[in-house]
Design a protein around this nucleic acid. Structure first.
Lengths: 195, 195
DNA sequence: GAGGACATGTAATGTGTTACATGATTAA
DNA sequence: TTAATCATGTAACACATTACATGTCCTC
């Protein structure tokens, strides 16, 4: 069996929830795993084609008057097996690529205000996330109380909450540090001007 | 002026610390920004070539007996200006791509033990990081006490610490949840076998 | 004398996004 | 009537990693 990467396995995982079309998958991502995973159409459509060719998913065409045909894919037994064996493999480490931190790290080359603005914007984003996660959590516990999927959703959600709360704490701390730095710089400039 | 991406700007930033060769840059990354940024040789060498062609860096060749020439690059005034203007631009959002969470989210398709192992491995990694960050912090405060770069290093470091501490908390919480889930499953199986 | 660090770089390959092309339906 | 949503998909491009090619010096 050929090795298959995270993207096709993510497609299999999503199809394990329910049979879907490529379009549906995109929707589903933004409604579920969008906070920690994303796929573009350019990955989804060719990906589904490949999976079908490999017999891991099955394609059914729903003909509809007017609008184009809907291609609904569902997992096959082989697909389910592939997903299972991929789950057992250790998760690949994320490639570190945090542009915000990169800009902050080189912050000495710009006015402190620039760094502060970056952190402030990030703070607002993360505060928003904390609220969103709380909302999703309530909704989920009510609507999917008996779903066997629920505990795993909550685990992912909890990861998001912990991460965003930590980000918020760091932002507040960092904003204070940057303000101190700004004041210190002004003092230096003033002393320099007076001399 | 042509738009340039995060990778060339990262190279400019690193060269702002001191003139370096491509090889040096790779070393420098693992000793400094490696926890939140990475670049491969396949990006670094052609990247430096482009930057030199655009006049943003200057190349000096150190001839050495025996071993191959060393190509040391340093920032030009234009390069410094480019870095400055890039720093002002808002940081691009990270593309969410967390394979661990993906595997946990679909954890219902595998024995709970599989998910627990993933979380356990991640916990160990993050605990290690917390220790590493503390070590680096001490070293940095001692060795670079008067470096204008220091506050920005500490900000990045603090981000790492907050993130890893949050990850550790989430791991411990999640391990407990997964253990509960495992016990609940065993009870169900037992009840099923007795019937 | 084997292996690893030093040091350069390219080519093949993989991965992923964006923009485009098409066209119906529906709501403002 | 203008825009958005539904729905499919491809092609061009951008971005990154990996493996390879080359050769010295130093240490075990």
């Amino acid at each position: 069996m050929r090795e298959i990467g995270a993207t096709p396995n993510a497609l299999l995982g999503l199809l394990s929830l329910e049979p879907m079309s490529g379009y549906d998958i995109r929707q589903m991502i933004s409604r579920s795993i969008g906070y920690f995973w994303s796929e573009s159409y350019g990955q989804i459509y060719p990906g589904l084609k490949r999976l079908a060719a490999d017999g891991l998913v099955e394609k059914k065409t729903e003909r509809r008057k007017g609008s184009p045909d809907r291609h609904v894919y569902s997992l096959t037994a082989a697909g389910r097996e592939q997903l299972r064996s991929w789950l057992k493999l250790p998760a690949a480490r994320e490639v570190p690529r945090d542009e915000l931190l990169l800009k902050l790290f080189f912050g000495a080359h710009a006015p402190v205000k620039v760094s502060r603005n970056h952190v402030q914007a990030y703070l607002e984003l993360q505060e928003e996330r904390v609220r969103t996660y709380a909302t999703i959590r309530k909704k989920l516990c009510k609507e999917a109380a008996n779903d066997p999927q629920l505990p795993f959703c909550l685990i992912a959600l909890s990861r998001g909450r912990h991460a965003s709360e930590a980000a918020v704490r760091w932002c507040r701390e960092t904003l204070k540090e940057l303000e101190k730095l700004e004041i210190a710089k002004k003092q230096v400039n003033k002393a320099y001007a007076e001399k």
